[in-house]
Design a protein around this nucleic acid. Sequence first.
DNA 1: CCACGCATGTAAATCGTTACATGATTAA
DNA 2: TTAATCATGTAACGATTTACATGCGTGG
Lengths: 193, 193
Amino acid sequence: MRSRQTRTAVLGALSIQPMTGYAMREAIRTTLGHFWSESFGQIYPTLAELEQEGLVERGEGTRTGSSTFALTPAGRAHLRTLLADPPQPDPPRNGVLLRLFFGRVLGPEACADLVRDARDRAERQLAGLAAERTDTDHTAHADDSPYWLLTISAGEHAARATIAWADETLATLATLAAEGHGGEPPTSSKETP
Amino acid sequence: MRSRQTRTAVLGALSIQPMTGYAMREAIRTTLGHFWSESFGQIYPTLAELEQEGLVERGEGTRTGSSTFALTPAGRAHLRTLLADPPQPDPPRNGVLLRLFFGRVLGPEACADLVRDARDRAERQLAGLAAERTDTDHTAHADDSPYWLLTISAGEHAARATIAWADETLATLATLAAEGHGGEPPTSSKETP
DNA sequence: CCACGCATGTAAATCGTTACATGATTAA
DNA sequence: TTAATCATGTAACGATTTACATGCGTGG
């Protein structure tokens, strides 16, 4: 069985409206993109599985060979149980912090580049979320929209936190650089005396 | 070859001080725990690989059969190149937001439970980081400690952001509940008229 | 002497992405 | 007509965790 998380995402997507696998991938990428992702390789097998179990129904698509999937009553019930059981915390992996932790090897200037990149990404993220907020039609899916706004807000809080941290960090790194904690040179005199 | 990320973590750990595979696992879990994780199944094969490539050296351990690994000069040089190339962004997956997005199916009260849990975790995280900050001996690894503090700070910013978001969200969910957007009942009258 | 912590390693299982093969439909 | 987009699915690969098998050393 595909992971419960993927099943949740797929059934959840269909709880908004029936759609094809392709459309689901697009919907997840654009709407859930700031906190979730699924690939075709997950979506199609999961849909097939859910169909076998009678949790989704395959209907006629708009073109030959395509099908729109829809939730069955059993599927909606199953989604409720999936949503109810506690989210499994995945092990944290932050590439920026990993590099920064070993920053002594790299030196303050290179670390500052790293942090500036992270800051830029957060800034763009923030702008993107603000755009989504204003662009989106709130009347179309009025019942779902308050919950959607909560996830947007989460993204904004996280991005602002990253920006604030980055600014503090850049100041710290500047003083570190001034104090002369330079990066280790490519060929260290300690290693080849 | 094991992933560059894992190699970076392993070489990085040895850049602080030589240690056994077992000790490395402990060090990563306790010190890098709030932003990174590695399991034995990754660490041992990676160490063997790096040894083959002459990037780490296996020395005598304190007991029979055990070995302490240390960085070679080539290993240190390789670590610098690994740290320099840009962090690969992994696809986001936030189980709490996934559940909240489909909150309409679950109802505002159950969503509030979810958010309260997330808030609790963030609060504990914050307390844990504060404890680490005060407990740790800054003189032992003085050269690495400023960079370590930057990662602690990142965790604190993120946790505070989660707490602030959770409080806002709980207020919003309370008004939603008051307006009567209850969860869908276990047996919907729409599905069985 | 025995339970627990230190220590190493492998095998299997899980989870997920990427790339490919294939074809229909539509807009230029 | 041809390129782009919609659409489905599979195969291969990669990354990572978990569980297991094994044994040394030490404190109670």
